[in-house]
Design a protein around this nucleic acid. Sequence first.
DNA 1: CGGTGCATTGATCAGAATCAATGATCGTGG
DNA 2: CCACGATCATTGATTCTGATCAATGCACCG
Lengths: 245, 245
Amino acid sequence: MAMDKVKFARNRLKCDNGNICAVCSIREVSICANLDKSELSQMASIARNQSVLPQQTIIGEGEVAELLFNITSGAVKIYKLLPDGRRQITGFLFKGDFLGIAHSEEYAYSAEAVSNVTLCRLPRRRFKALLDEIPRLEKQLLEVVSNELTQAQDQMLLLGRKTAREKVVSFLLSLSDHARKGGQKVSLISLPMNRADIADYLGLTTETVSRTFTNLKSNGAIRLLPGNMVELAESDKLKDMADGS
Amino acid sequence: MAMDKVKFARNRLKCDNGNICAVCSIREVSICANLDKSELSQMASIARNQSVLPQQTIIGEGEVAELLFNITSGAVKIYKLLPDGRRQITGFLFKGDFLGIAHSEEYAYSAEAVSNVTLCRLPRRRFKALLDEIPRLEKQLLEVVSNELTQAQDQMLLLGRKTAREKVVSFLLSLSDHARKGGQKVSLISLPMNRADIADYLGLTTETVSRTFTNLKSNGAIRLLPGNMVELAESDKLKDMADGS
DNA sequence: CGGTGCATTGATCAGAATCAATGATCGTGG
DNA sequence: CCACGATCATTGATTCTGATCAATGCACCG
């Protein structure tokens, strides 16, 4: 029965890490997509699972980058700080996202768990060595980083040129889009992060985020539901609001 | 004499593209760094030189990405537009920078020459094929893209959380830093782009950029010289101004 | 010499920040 | 189970930074 299976898997994990990648639920949406069995077992040999509680720091900007992570569940925020404490969240990461890529020896940003998070942890040196052995892995990584760059450029447009309302609507739509890719309902999304996080992601204050939500609510564009859920109106109308057209 | 050499090179270029990479002046600062002779000749076999006048469009957002470019001289701006014409310049590119990387089939941004520009043009399909043959090239590309991502995150911090003055000073310092890497004087930098470009890069208006320059000038932080040159004061003081500390 | 495009400066406005208070939610312990 | 406190979200009043509108100045070029 199911219980036994789980127990068996756990036991195997303790003494032998061999198949954690083979049974990984997020493999096909992660950097490990398209790897064959032997490549997966190479990955498994350097990978370890790890749990992180909300608010806990995963990596710190400027620290020596000894570990890389693949997010297997939960939400993570990555951010940069100014000396006086001003913060810019440069991204929210979810299951399947890769964390800690650094071309330099140090992390370029900090990362903190937003919700309960589980991670697949990889020593950087060994991962880099694997890149030489598994060309496909390097290709996947290049694709991941290119995607992140494109997203970063979209976010620059948002930060530099959009109004508060456009920023908030764009944010909600990007979460909705993310839910769509995960096969979930697109009109009902969850906001695991608090207002301060949203504000620091959009270059606003918590008060402005809150007022904008209220305003969108009274327009019938959204509904705020219990449990940090938001219901979106027809997305065509919202899509127009997101870029001012 | 020198004249004959140039003529000879030009003639070779017409009938045989063989050594354009071998003699490329920006090779070591570009994606072609660290390639061996045979790899360079593979690159050369698909590369063509191209000149672009100021203000000319090089690629357009949304177009099918058939070409990639390596900038061999001059300055290029890349940008994204909102439907109503608002513009965010996401980067200025200079010699050695790579242009047109797109994980999708379409360019994610537009690019336009700021000054006279010379390019090394590569058909995307053939370049992608080369990536499979030359692992080192893929490594270089990954490094380039990772670097751009890090820069993009810095720029997000700037756009979302810095004041007008901090933005302008950060911009000047980044140009100075770029000059330093190019082995030029760091206290005397050139601004090939106009005020509107700077504004659209920093998420400001031309008026605010202009006022901020005037203000920095009267503080003795900078001097505006003829020929779009700017002289910077001691960079320690400026570095503090760039992040509000 | 005039004209065109770009930069600067001035006056005013507006959107978002800041300062301040209140309200809602959740977890904890009595 | 309820009361309390802590944390987070919302709302209000006011301020301020940077945008907008408008005019002038400057340099380069035919």
